[in-house]
């Protein structure tokens, strides 16, 4: 829900780039290039809490991203912002789980929102891991959940689990190997 007075302020601050639907507490960003400006404006208006951020793969290199915000004082006020992102050229993204944030090719990165809302750091990590969208500026862009050995991004439409047909077998072999070696002290831990 989005109270009318807040909707009015959002129209004032970001009206030229947002299609706002207060009844659904929903807004579509028409110019993705203005994302950071719009986000800063929304935070200034009082949307200081980022609750959720996720993506949807549309096919090819196109994605929709969704960010749900809540007002800091008006707890009844929420807003979900949607925008489109196109991965211009495939990022030189290291596989999820790498120790350090990998380097990405120029324009193919999405700006990180974690400097505006700290909570989005975790959300971006999740999106990076499942969709392969790199976020420039996220200081800790490593996978959260998936096995580091898994190749590809499971929530992309073109992901095929069949390409990992030997995955379970390899995993079992590795576990058996570990069992033979027993518990070892790992100085790199």
């Amino acid at each position: 829900m989005l109270p009318e007075e807040l909707a009015g302020r959002i129209r004032e601050e970001c009206g030229d780039v947002l299609l706002l639907d207060p009844a659904r507490a929903w807004a579509i960003l028409t110019d993705s290039g203005r994302l950071l400006d719009v986000c800063r404006n929304l935070k200034n208006i009082g949307f200081i809490r980022a609750l959720n951020m996720t993506a949807n793969h549309l096919g090819g290199r196109d994605f929709h991203l969704y960010l749900t915000l809540r007002h800091g004082e008006r707890h009844d006020a929420s807003l979900t912002l949607k925008w489109k992102f196109t991965l211009l050229d495939e990022a030189i993204a290291g596989e999820p789980g790498e120790e350090s944030a990998p380097a990405y090719a120029g324009q193919s990165v999405h700006p990180s929102l974690s400097l505006i809302w700290r909570a989005t750091e975790l959300m971006e990590r999740e999106i990076f891991e499942f969709f392969g969208i790199p976020f420039a500026g996220n200081q800790n862009l490593v996978g959260l959940i998936l096995d580091p050995q898994l190749q590809g991004f499971p929530l992309r439409r073109d992901f095929r689990a069949a390409s990992h047909e030997n995955y379970a077998e390899k995993l079992l072999e590795e576990r058996a190997d570990r069992a033979v070696r027993g518990v070892m002290h790992d100085p790199q831990f």
Binding site: R24, A25, W26, L51, N52, T54, N56, H64, Y66, T68, S78, T80, K82, L155
Partner: peptide, 28 residues
């Protein structure tokens, strides 16, 4: 359609983003 909805679960805000495409299966 697309929607975000949330419930006050015992642990906090449990939310769901649903993207539907007119079929009997969720798109996302």
């Amino acid at each position: 359609g697309e929607v975000y909805t949330a419930v006050e679960s015992p642990r906090g805000e449990l939310g769901l983003t649903l993207v539907s495409d007119g079929t009997n299966r969720p798109s996302r």
